[in-house]
Each structure stands twice: as C-alpha cells, then as structure tokens.
Amino acid sequence: MKILVIEDEKELSKNIVKYLSNDSYRCEQAYNFSTAMEKIALYNYDCILLDLNLPGGDGIQILEEIKSLKIDSGIIIISARGSLDDRIEGLKIGADDYLAKPFSLSELSVRIYALMRRRQFSHNNIMISGDVEIDMLSKTVKVKERIITLTKSEYDLLLFLLGNKNRVVSKDAIAEHLSGDMADMLDSHNFVYAHIKNLKAKFAKAGSSNKIKTIYGTGYQWVEQEH
C-alpha cells in the first residue's frame, strides 16, 4: 500500500515514515508544495497525509487539486490548525479524516488503518489477529470461535492495539484515544491500567495465545502469535 506524506517538518515526516513502514506500507515524502503537486500528478497513492501549512503554497490547494484530478486516494489532514472550524472546513473540501498536531503516531496509524479498511475492504468487516477475530459491523469479538463480551472501552482499546500490532503504544495515546481531547488533563495511569488488566484477563480466560505486553506501565504492545 502506498502512502504519500506531505509534511514540511522533516523530522516529523521521517518519524511518520519510520513508524508506518513496520506495516505493509510503502511511504514517499514531499517536503514542499511543488513536490507534492508533482507526485500527485505522476503517481497513484492509496493514502495521502496532508499538512496544510506548506512552504510555497496552501495545503487546501493541494486538496482541491486532488479532487479536481479525480484522484481516488484516501486523504488525512495533519495540521497545526486544530480548531473545529478548520476541521469542518477540511472535511467539507473532501478530506477523509483530520488529525490535529501534535498527535501520537499510534493514533495516526489507527486512523490510516481504519481509512484503508473503509475504502478497500468495505465488503470485509472481519479483522483477524492470531486466534482473535473481530466483526466490526456487529462489534463482536471471538476467541477460538467463541464470543467474549467486552465493554465499549475495552473494545475500542482492542482495536487500537490491533491497529498498532507488534508496535508499542504509549499509555497517553491510549488514554487520549479512549477519552478524547481532555485525557491529558487527568492522570491516566489507573484508568489505562484497569482496562488493560480487564482485557488481558478476558483473553486469558478464553484461552487466547495472543498477549498484551506491558513495557513498565508506560507502553503496551499487542504481540501477534503466528498460527
């Protein structure tokens, strides 16, 4: 799957590419307006990550160009302009998602994953990792063909971990994903720990061989077991 990262901040662009290339993604980078326009015209991408403030032009123009060329790529805006108005404006012009800076790479990865799934596998709503099977339509989780019951938060947490499988996601990223923008204002340690503990217990009880690895309470990792 091909992704174009249009971001002028080279360090950020580099980190995005590094984080995403663990998956089956092939990333290309554009640091400025003209390179971005060129690449869009020349190649096809499944997903385009678009920063709005670029040297040499406004990212909104790139978005309009993509739309006028009828290019069928998924578009996620990554922008420092985080207000709701900017968000609505971006989505109105045709972006599929909007992520305000600063964001965690895990969140970005999950958003790309969700977008790709919506676009390419819309007929297939089953997600499988090891012996765990998730039906996204009915929101049911099966371990070894047996349904286990999860709370909404646990279900969201599981999807978040699976969207970043084999990578470590930070406690803060989980908290923000589960309780939104205000997560950082409260100590998230107990909150995340409790959910992880419950999720682990439910999988252990169902006899799953998948495991959630804890990195000293700071990060969590979904380790996929091969069949």
Binding site: E9, N15, P102
Partner: peptide, 15 residues
Amino acid sequence: QTPLAVFKSQLDILL
C-alpha cells in the same frame, strides 16, 4: 504545535 508534534513523534519512535 509543530515542534511539539516532532517531540511527541520522537518519543513514539523511541518507545
């Protein structure tokens, strides 16, 4: 926002 985003992404990579 942008330097903060770089900072945060570095931590994600470091982790």
